[in-house]
Design a binder for these strands. Structure first.
Length: 321
DNA sequence: CGGTTTTGACCAGGA
DNA sequence: ATCCTGGTCAAAACC
């Protein structure tokens, strides 16, 4: 892609909207779904509070999305007579560690009759900056990093999270460790899914040393069960009144630990409101080979037509090795 | 009483 | 081989 798309990306960041003017998209007739997948929640956290007149259409990947061999996500309407094609301009290939947000994703609406050849041809048009059909290009605002610290360890996906986001989680977690990591004054907290013994979902939470309001959340593994029905843990927070964090998250920097460690006993007695499972954090991201986040906002603009807007940070495609 | 948190010990991988 | 670092374990304490 050339400079055109870079410009669009810049506009998208500043305007929070990423669409060419006066573009009418085909009527998709998509069902509104409130099923958010993990990527949706991670990459489009602001959509939680979307209050505009538009409908938030969150497309559940296993049901609505499908992929074709040429690296495409296709969203079909119920009658299968219209499709929304989503495609990563630059395939995102994860290696040991790679940061994603520089990647661009293109979203286009094309007739359902598009064949692979036609689609490739459209890509060529895009490559030369042609404007023959509606398309968007935008960047993510959420830093998403995939890493693998050790050979046999599962791949972890790391992203930045706000305190608010930490408190909204449907999964139950049990803390199993805490470690001060070199280079950071804040400890890293280790959690496992506590709902099922056989669930391999894990996550790590640590406070960002760069921004006091940001937490770094790393997820690995997948939940192999439904979220717990009981959300009893959601209400429990520790006594950090300033932050109102979920219980169990220790963000005390090293210095304060040392200064306050007058207690010499191995088991430091803690106040009643410090110990408890951390719940209320994002669910781990499902890192599958076919994970692609798709969220669209559909504007009804009359004449039976719908306008599909893509928020600047609500879509991305992820391909794995 | 069962589940969770705490925290030092242990272990494996990398330098 | 040794050291360092990060991830996990597990016993004790807590809720």
């Amino acid at each position: 892609m050339g400079d055109d798309n870079r410009d669009i990306g810049v506009v998208a960041r500043s305007c929070n909207i990423n669409k060419p003017n006066n573009v009418v998209y085909p009527k998709l007739g998509l069902n509104v779904s409130h099923v958010w997948n993990y990527f949706d929640k991670t990459l489009a956290p602001r959509m939680n509070s979307f209050t505009g007149s538009s409908e938030i259409v969150s497309l559940d990947f296993p049901i609505i999305r499908q992929e074709r061999s040429y690296d495409q996500v296709i969203i079909s309407n119920q009658n299968n007579n219209q499709e929304l094609y989503l495609h990563s301009i630059t395939p995102i290939q994860f290696i040991q560690q790679i940061t994603v947000p520089q990647s661009r994703t293109i979203v286009e609406c094309v007739p359902p009759t598009t064949t692979q050849a036609e689609w490739i041809d459209k890509q060529k048009q895009l490559d030369i900056g042609a404007n023959s059909h509606p398309n968007f290009s935008f960047s993510m605002t959420t830093t998403l990093t995939q890493s693998q610290t050790r050979k046999n360890h599962s791949i972890m996906l790391t992203y930045e999270s706000s305190q608010q986001e930490l408190t909204n989680d449907k999964w139950a977690w049990r803390k199993y460790g805490q470690k001060y990591i070199k280079g950071s004054p804040f400890p890293r907290n280790y959690y496992k899914c506590s709902t099922s013994k056989h669930c391999e979902a894990k996550k790590q939470i640590e406070k960002s040393s760069k921004d006091e309001d940001i937490f770094l959340v790393s997820c690995s593994g997948e939940h192999n069960h439904d979220p717990p029905k009981s959300r009893r843990y959601l209400a429990s927070c520790n006594n950090n009144s300033k932050l109102n964090l979920p219980k169990g998250i220790n963000i005390s920097p090293k210095e304060s630990i040392f200064n306050a460690s007058s207690s010499l006993s191995k088991r430091v007695k803690h106040s009643t409101d410090v110990a408890s499972p951390i719940i209320g954090t994002k669910p781990p991201l499902e890192i599958g080979s076919k994970n692609k986040m798709v969220v669209a906002v559909v504007h009804n603009i009359g004449d039976g037509e719908e306008k599909v807007d893509m928020n600047e940070d609500i879509f991305m495609g992820i391909d794995q090795l």
